[in-house]
Write a protein that binds this DNA or RNA. Sequence first.
DNA 1: CATATTCCATAGTGGTCGCTATGGAATATG
DNA 2: CATATTCCATAGCGACCACTATGGAATATG
Lengths: 182, 182
Amino acid sequence: MLTFWRHGYETTSVADLTAAMGVTAPSLYTAFGDKKLLFLEAVRLYAGDPDVMARTIGDAPSALEAARDLMTAAATAYTGEETPRGCLLASATASGSAASCDVQQAVADIRRGVQRRLDERIQRDIADGALPLTTNPAELSGLVMAVIQGMSVLARDGASRASLLATVQAALRAWPGMAAER
Amino acid sequence: MLTFWRHGYETTSVADLTAAMGVTAPSLYTAFGDKKLLFLEAVRLYAGDPDVMARTIGDAPSALEAARDLMTAAATAYTGEETPRGCLLASATASGSAASCDVQQAVADIRRGVQRRLDERIQRDIADGALPLTTNPAELSGLVMAVIQGMSVLARDGASRASLLATVQAALRAWPGMAAER
DNA sequence: CATATTCCATAGTGGTCGCTATGGAATATG
DNA sequence: CATATTCCATAGCGACCACTATGGAATATG
């Protein structure tokens, strides 16, 4: 997972993987099938259980809290000392040949799933009166997703954890009810 | 440029490039040196003259206008009918083996340059009194950069131009003086 | 203890990578 | 018209790609 995270899907060779895992190529293939299946396994390990993610968003006190948690967790994870910079999902399949478009789709599906959960959470807040009726859910969920994915690029470029957390705080000022002025 | 844009730097082969350009490999090598130099040339073509970019940001009526223009142009460019989705700079070197880290740095330098120009423009607005003294320039420029880079991922995932433009509008509500409520 | 079976590291498979040597056609020169 | 020079497409360079056939060691069985 760490090797794919650091170097991407197509740009990581099976030789890199066997070296990192300390196993031989035949062991890898009997255990995981092929490189694509191993990558998808690494993605599952990285993303965690989708139900847990859905529950985390659903159980947050408000959509605002959910968005804040998501972005803060991303900013922290992308600047960890023990892990590669940025987001495995954002960088590993950001580009690729036509041969890997199904892998790109699988990763995109995860992103779309997160956005959908967040979208639904925002709609619930609107229905509950916690957010104004004029709130545009897609607009807000899109902003949160863009900030999360964008921070991955900034983290790879060397941005500090503090600067990313500041970016999160700035993004939250776009939320309905958060004063833009100090 | 379009081929690198669509498939990334390391994940585009020289055979792909010669096919797209309609030339043979020896012609490509005598004209451009090697694959890396050809990519950097494509990046220059994509990014345009850095001075033009700097002047565009500097000459905008305000930092807000500059930020809005940057993000709107990105949202539009990332969803063009005639070009690949997303941003060449954001996706082509988002991941790569250790061998291409100098290319990744070159692309990161362009991003840092844009952010620095925007940062300086914000500082000028603060000095001119167009923005409150409490404004944090790095925070705002970081947000704009994150939204721009993030929209590239969303565009690749299939987001519409309208939804990206809505994201831009949402992001601008984080700007000092822009009311968060409708 | 002898035979059969499982297991896995070595050593390669054909194919593609980035890159280039070479020979024949086209042009310039005497 | 003969020779010299430029030019570029063909063909192929070693290295690496994802992936796998095979033989010897270790274990299980009679």
